[in-house]
C-alpha cells in the first residue's frame, strides 16, 4: 500500500498522545521521549505495514507498547525508593462475614458482546482505573496492559513479589467494586 505524502505529518500529529501514554507507563519523561522517538522512527521505516484497518493511533500505540516493555526489561537502574502497597490491608474485609464468606456475593456479569457494550465497558473501566491510587494503577497496568511478569515489575518498582501480588489484588478488588457501581 503506497504511503500518503503527509504520512510523516500525521505521525507527528500523534506525538503528544504517544508521549502522554509513555509517560504514564514509565513515569520518566526522558525514557518516555526515547520510546516515542523510536516508535515514530519504526513507523516511518515500516509504514507500509500499516494496513489502515485500525486507526493510526491504535497502530502506533501497539508499537509504542512494545518499545516501553523493552525499555523496562532493559533497565538495570535501581529504583530510588522502594514502594509499599498503598491503602489499608483490611479495606476489603467488609466484603466478607467474620467466617470469611461473602457478605454480598458477586453476581454474574453479562459479557459485553456487542460493539456498543464493549465500548461502554471499556469506558467504565478507564474511569475506574483513574480512581486507583497512582502507584497501584501503575503496577497494575504494567502487569495487565503491558503484560510484564511479576519479577519484571518487582525489579522496576523495587518491591517484593508478595507486595506485587498484594497490589494486584487490591487493584482487581477495587476495579471490580467500581465496575459493579458504574457499568450499567
Amino acid at each position: 500500500m503506497p504511503l500518503p505524502i503527509d504520512f510523516h505529518a500525521q505521525l507527528e500529529g500523534q506525538r503528544d498522545y504517544l508521549l502522554r501514554y509513555a509517560t504514564l507507563q514509565l513515569r520518566d519523561s526522558d525514557r518516555a521521549e526515547d520510546c516515542v522517538q523510536e516508535t515514530l522512527l519504526a513507523a516511518l521505516a515500516g509504514g507500509a505495514g500499516y494496513d489502515g484497518r485500525s486507526s493510526l493511533r491504535t497502530w502506533l500505540t501497539g508499537i509504542l507498547k512494545h518499545k516501553i516493555v523493552d525499555a523496562i526489561r532493559r533497565s538495570n537502574r535501581e529504583p530510588a525508593t522502594a514502594l509499599e502497597p498503598e491503602g489499608d490491608a483490611s479495606e476489603f474485609d467488609t466484603l466478607f462475614d467474620p467466617r470469611g464468606h461473602w457478605a454480598q456475593a458477586p453476581m454474574a456479569w453479562e459479557r459485553p458482546d456487542s460493539a456498543l457494550e464493549r465500548s461502554q465497558f471499556l469506558a467504565a473501566l478507564e474511569a475506574c482505573l483513574e480512581q486507583l491510587p497512582a502507584r497501584t494503577a501503575r503496577a497494575f497496568m504494567m502487569r495487565e496492559h503491558m503484560g510484564l511478569e511479576t519479577e519484571e515489575i518487582c525489579k522496576e518498582l523495587g518491591i517484593s513479589a508478595t507486595n506485587c501480588w498484594v497490589m494486584m489484588y487490591r487493584a482487581r478488588m477495587a476495579l471490580r467494586l467500581c465496575l459493579e457501581r458504574t457499568w450499567k
Binding site: L3, L56, R57, T58, T61, L122, L125, M141, H145
Partner: peptide
C-alpha cells in the same frame, strides 16, 4: 478488557 484498552481508545478516523 485491560489488554484491549489501547486497541479501543482514540477516534477511529485518525488514520490516513
Amino acid at each position: 478488557a485491560v489488554r484491549q484498552l489501547a486497541e479501543a481508545e482514540g477516534p477511529r478516523d485518525t488514520g490516513p
